[in-house]
């Protein structure tokens, strides 16, 4: 009896999906939270019969994949910003895949040139302002935030957060290092308080009257608007959302992507590609908007009506990989100006 117990115990401790890899199951390393990714996977499993297993972590999954090497159980990697996707490609952890569906569904500036990673949804970094305190048309471009007339009126989370770092990188891409640094300095000089909190907290600060202008990711606008928390729904009343840089000769609003790729040593590449394809097709593309207020990458899919009601926007068509490549320089500027 004790022996049986011991064996049972050891089995629990030493087994994982890893050692029991089943051909029909798909193992996913995800930077996206389970409660956001599960609705997609449920539909996928229903349609294909392929069961999925998820490991969610915000940091270090690339290192885990690398250390596991060819022994890794992972089939698919899903991330929520281009910086992380790029790291996987940079560490040579993704397989080159050949898929007509992906080629067709994903625009060229949102995927890698070597077919290793693919953007699956878009989010834009937008400006929100207090309707009463900032006049219509006073802020049209992200560059305007450096104008000294906004001194003490802007709130932002720390510059070294991935979203702001990506925005900083897009400024470098548009204006070069020196100009981008000047802009960042101007922005920091205009801050109403030490950079702190998350994107939601910036909206709250406008609501409280600590500042009049904030930079947030577009989906937080939706998450607050439909929040289960009544007070959070209050915060966005009296806010105006501005998609920056929309003038016809301007570059468009900075965007970031969530995306994915197939693990280099996946033992289940066919099913892995199937999942990526599924995520790029209409049904899933709609889900991104419905669940998390993100924009579809597939040009044939319209944004949800809720997203459309916030206004049409034109995105910066800069090849998204540039954002990742300039991340290093961006962080340097952020350190320098103390954002």
């Amino acid at each position: 009896m004790p022996k049986t117990l011991l064996y049972a115990f050891l089995t629990i401790i030493f087994t994982s999906v890893n050692s029991l890899s089943v051909a029909s199951e798909l193992n996913i390393y995800s930077h996206r939270q389970p409660f956001l990714i599960n609705p997609f996977l449920e539909v996928f499993t229903k349609e294909t019969g392929i069961k999925t297993n998820v490991l969610y972590s915000t940091k270090g999954l690339a290192q885990r994949l690398k250390a596991e090497g060819e022994n890794s159980p992972a089939d698919v990697v899903l991330t929520v910003d281009i910086g992380r996707l790029y790291i996987y490609a940079d560490m040579d952890l993704l397989a080159e895949i050949d898929s007509n569906v992906l080629d067709k569904n994903i625009p060229i500036h949102l995927k890698s040139s070597s077919n290793t990673w693919f953007g699956l949804s878009k989010r834009s970094r937008v400006i929100v302002v207090s309707e009463n305190k900032v006049g219509d048309g006073e802020i049209n471009r992200i560059e305007d935030l450096a104008d000294p007339k906004w001194k003490g009126r802007i709130c932002s989370r720390p510059g070294s957060h991935v979203y702001n770092r990506a925005l900083m990188a897009s400024m470098i891409a548009a204006h070069g290092n020196a100009e981008a640094e000047k802009w960042a300095r101007g922005l920091v000089n205009n801050l109403a308080r030490r950079p702190q909190g998350n994107d939601r907290a910036q909206v709250k600060a406008i609501f409280e009257g600590q500042c009049d202008i904030a930079i947030i990711n577009n989906y937080y606008f939706g998450k607050l608007k439909f929040s289960e928390d009544e007070t959070q729904r209050e915060w966005i009343k009296g806010l105006r959302l501005i998609f920056p840089n929309q003038e016809p000769n301007d570059r468009g609003a900075h965007i970031n992507i969530s995306g994915g790729g197939v693990a280099k040593y996946s033992k289940n590449k066919e099913a892995a590609i199937k999942l990526l394809e599924f995520l790029s097709e209409k049904e899933a593309q709609n889900l991104y908007g419905e669940i998390n207020f993100e924009y579809p990458v597939n040009p044939k899919t319209e944004p949800t009506s809720e997203l459309k009601s916030w206004g049409n926007f034109r995105e910066d068509k800069l090849s998204i990989v540039k954002i990742a490549e300039l991340g290093y320089e961006a962080q340097k500027i952020i350190d320098k100006v103390g954002w």
Binding site: S16, F35, L55, S57, G60, L61, P73
Partner: peptide
């Protein structure tokens, strides 16, 4: 942080379960 990164597939502890919400700023 260690549990998050090292755990088996589909395995949650209270801390990791909490974190997926906290990370999305869903403090409720």
């Amino acid at each position: 942080p260690m549990t998050l990164l090292l755990r088996p597939f589909n395995f949650e502890t209270l801390a990791t379960y909490t974190y997926q919400f906290a990370h999305d700023e869903l403090m409720g």
